[in-house]
Simulated scan of single mutants.
Amino acid sequence: MNRRTAVAGALALTTGLALTACSSDSAPRLEVSGAFMPQPVSDMAAGFLLVKNSGGATDRLTSVTSALSDHVSIHETVNRTMRMVSSFEVPAGGELDLERGGSHIMFTDLKKQPKQGETVSVELHFEKADPITVDIPVKETTYDPTKR
């Protein structure tokens, strides 16, 4: 076998492997779990959940919408200071944890006050994946799953 044939064969094999890696495994595969909202005590509320990405590509949570409020945003908390952000990364093979004391969904100017035992429907919007609708259960005001 001459050198050109060997190089061409190696390139063909490499291209085939690269195309195989770009199959559906390289798309984000998102799943949401652990959602909850502490019962609000004012016209603001926070939502928490876990987004797992079992796919091979990173995605971004870019926004959240809900009939509960026309003003839903995503916030991060760093050194006890909360600030609105435009998106959160959901890493390939990783997760985005929106949790008490950290990053979260913020609802302001609530249209109604949800009560413990009810659910609040939200739609999570991503850069790549289709939107995901989540029914968030409303828990007691002091609910913290890490302390159970």
Rank of each mutant, 00 (worst) to 15 (best):
M1F: 12
R4T: 15
R4N: 15
R4S: 11
V7L: 12
L11N: 07
A12I: 10
A12N: 10
T15Q: 11
T15Y: 08
G16H: 08
L19V: 08
L19F: 09
A21P: 03
C22Y: 13
C22R: 15
S23Q: 08
S24M: 10
P28A: 08
E31S: 11
E31D: 14
V32I: 03
S33D: 12
S33T: 12
G34F: 04
G34H: 11
A35F: 02
A35Q: 03
M37C: 08
Q39L: 04
V41W: 14
S42N: 13
D43C: 08
D43R: 14
A46P: 06
L49D: 02
L49A: 01
L50W: 04
V51K: 00
K52W: 10
S54A: 14
G55T: 07
A57K: 10
A57E: 10
T58Y: 07
R60M: 08
R60P: 02
R60H: 10
L61H: 00
S63P: 06
S66T: 01
A67S: 14
A67W: 04
D70V: 02
H71Q: 10
V72I: 06
I74N: 01
I74T: 06
I74W: 00
I74D: 00
H75E: 12
E76P: 05
V78W: 10
V78I: 11
R80A: 08
T81I: 07
M82Y: 07
M82N: 08
M84F: 10
S86Q: 08
S86N: 09
S87I: 02
S87A: 12
S87Q: 15
S87Y: 09
V90R: 00
P91C: 07
P91N: 05
E95V: 07
E95D: 13
L98E: 00
L98F: 04
R100I: 12
G102V: 02
G102A: 12
S103Y: 05
H104K: 11
I105E: 00
M106L: 14
F107E: 00
T108Q: 09
T108Y: 00
D109V: 01
D109Q: 11
Q113M: 12
Q113P: 08
P114N: 04
K115A: 09
Q116C: 11
G117N: 02
E118C: 02
E123A: 04
H125K: 13
K128H: 13
K128V: 09
A129H: 09
D130T: 11
I132H: 01
I132A: 02
D135G: 03
I136Q: 00
I136H: 00
P137S: 02
E140M: 13
T141Y: 11
T141A: 15
T141R: 15
T142A: 13
T142M: 11
Y143D: 04
T146M: 10
K147Q: 15
